[in-house]
Design a protein around this nucleic acid. Structure first.
Lengths: 78, 78, 78, 78
DNA sequence: ATTGCGGTTTTTGCCC
DNA sequence: GGGCAAAAACCGCAAT
């Protein structure tokens, strides 16, 4: 097995990733801003974070349940 | 601030940790044995793992909910 | 000091944050996709990651240097 | 090939595994406690971890060597 | 300033 | 050996 490895292509991949990471960082910063704003309105960061974490956990559990059902179906050949 | 750092004491800590890690590994091995046994009885590892993961997630969500309640109470000075 | 705390406003904040976190996750997934694509073309993930980390460090160093220069200039009233 | 699959037996397996995972978690917590205690006595966690990792690698290397010797012996009919 | 705590990333291990 | 889940290491914020 062989690949055509070129500096130019590698550079393309790296730049695409760097661009996306930049984007990700911007979004993180926006999230921080919202927390700051909420805090300024009297909402405790700690509580807001905890609510969000709980909601995420619940959503993950629901998704997992669905995935489990799919696994069952697959196992039963449905 | 200063501490009394000694090779003997360091050794004690390291040995305690190594002993516990040994124990942990033994438990992991027992878990693997159970999976193997279950598989031998026709229970698919993939499904068993998924069920356990789901149950863990649900438990974590319940615990988190409780923690959130505590945070609320604290915030309200109760 | 008092604030107007309302469930509706809290909900707004939470939903804004969740939306942004969703966005962040999507970007993360895109990054993973690029790594996968690169890998499919024969570029080792581990190495690509190293290059990116290195470039980020270099960029940080340049930014740092620039910030230092600005501090100097300001101190000199330029 | 057929198996007798029952909800009751599946439950047994799951509970056995969950019990063992609980145990594992407890051991992990004990390990954390030891690290904390050591830290309280002035021993840096990071360094203690490094030492332990190093010792484990050395042990693995010795075990490996021993296993190799056994292979040789067996091959020579000893 | 220091330390706990969450989140993120990296590494490890497992199963296929 | 390649993908996926768990564990460990690392980092950064926040609270004290």
């Amino acid at each position: 097995m062989s690949y055509e490895i070129t500096a130019a292509e590698l550079r393309q991949y790296i730049e695409r990733i760097e661009r996306l990471e930049e984007e990700k960082k911007e979004t993180s910063d926006l999230i921080k801003d919202v927390y700051k704003e909420a805090k300024g309105q009297g909402y405790e960061t700690k509580i807001v974070k905890q609510i969000i974490r709980l909601r995420r956990m619940e959503k993950d559990a629901r998704d997992e349940e669905e995935a489990l059902l799919d696994t069952y179906k697959e196992a039963l050949g449905l």
